[in-house]
Amino acid sequence: MQIAILTFDGFNELDSFVALSLLNRVHGWRATICAPNATVTSMGGVTVTAGARLNELPDMDAIVVGSGVRTRQIAADTALMARLRLDAARQLIGAQCSGALLLAALGLLGDGPVCTDVTTRPWIEAGGASVIDAPFHASANVATAGGCMAAYYLAAWMIAHGAGEAQARSVIDYVAPVGEKEATVERVMGVVSPFLA
């Protein structure tokens, strides 16, 4: 499983790094930061080297679209958006918070409910989508999550799709807080399981 964590300058570290870490805990999977340039700098000033570039997106099995402080500008950049070739018929695609703006610009949100953060919500609704007060929702191969810590819902959903629910439970159990492991696993899987059938 090859997974791109689609990341732009001004990205939110929690969205990108949590998903990156969780997805790479599945044996044989490779999740990597995918960016337009060789390096990308977060909203907190952390600069990382991209492991993949935008031209590699069509070859990926799954894509996580992270959020950041510049997502609205990116969604309005027609030249940049034309480089984002995503295929919801073949790829699992998940967006975190303002990443939903990119899915909207690409026409991938469909008519279903959307999850996003409170800051992004008015912009998504202005585009005609229905935002719900939930941390996660998926329709077929496209999922959205709202709130920085909802990254583990996206990761669990992708892992369960690609490696099974038992593997998703194992990964979440490993990273869950001590003393809260069982409750955390049940909460995360309780949210994503209805979208796995």
Rank of each mutant, 00 (worst) to 15 (best):
V171Y: 01
G162A: 12
A166W: 09
V131I: 06
V175K: 05
A151K: 05
W123D: 11
D173N: 04
S139I: 08
A197G: 14
M158S: 00
T144P: 09
F136A: 05
Y174W: 15
G147W: 08
S130V: 15
H161A: 15
G179D: 13
V178W: 11
F136S: 07
G190L: 04
S130G: 01
M189I: 09
C148T: 09
V131Y: 02
A168N: 06
A143K: 03
N141D: 10
A168F: 04
A126K: 08
A129M: 04
A176E: 08
N141V: 13
A163E: 13
G128M: 06
P122M: 06
A145H: 01
A160M: 05
G127E: 13
A134I: 12
Q167T: 15
A151P: 03
S193V: 07
S193D: 12
T144D: 06
G128K: 07
V185R: 02
T184H: 12
V171K: 00
P177T: 01
A138K: 00
E165L: 04
G128A: 10
A183Q: 09
E180K: 07
K181A: 08
E182M: 07
V192L: 15
A197I: 09
E180G: 11
I124G: 00
C148G: 12
A129I: 04
A197W: 10
Y174I: 06
I132L: 15
R169K: 09
Y152F: 03
A166E: 13
A150F: 02
D173A: 14
V178C: 04
F195R: 00
R169V: 08
V178S: 14
I124E: 03
S139W: 10
V192M: 12
A126M: 03
V171P: 01
T144W: 00
L196D: 09
A140H: 15
A134L: 11
A150N: 05
R169F: 08
V191W: 01
I172D: 02
E125F: 12
G128S: 09
P122T: 05
A129L: 12
G128V: 08
E165C: 03
A168E: 05
P177V: 09
A163W: 10
V171F: 01
E180V: 03
I172T: 07
G147D: 08
W157Y: 07
T144S: 05
I132H: 03
V178A: 15
G179Y: 14
K181Y: 12
A166M: 07
D133W: 04
Y153L: 09
E125R: 08
V191M: 11
V142K: 04
A197K: 10
F195E: 03
T144Y: 03
V191C: 07
A156E: 11
A138I: 09
Y174A: 14
M149P: 02
A176H: 07
K181C: 08
A168R: 00
S193T: 14
V178I: 15
A126Q: 06
M158V: 03
V171S: 01
E125I: 11
A197T: 13
L196Q: 11
V188T: 10
A145D: 02
V191Y: 03
A134N: 13
A134W: 09
G162C: 13
I132S: 04
F136Q: 13
S193E: 14
V142G: 11
V191P: 01
E182T: 14
S130H: 13
E165N: 06
A143Y: 01
A183F: 13
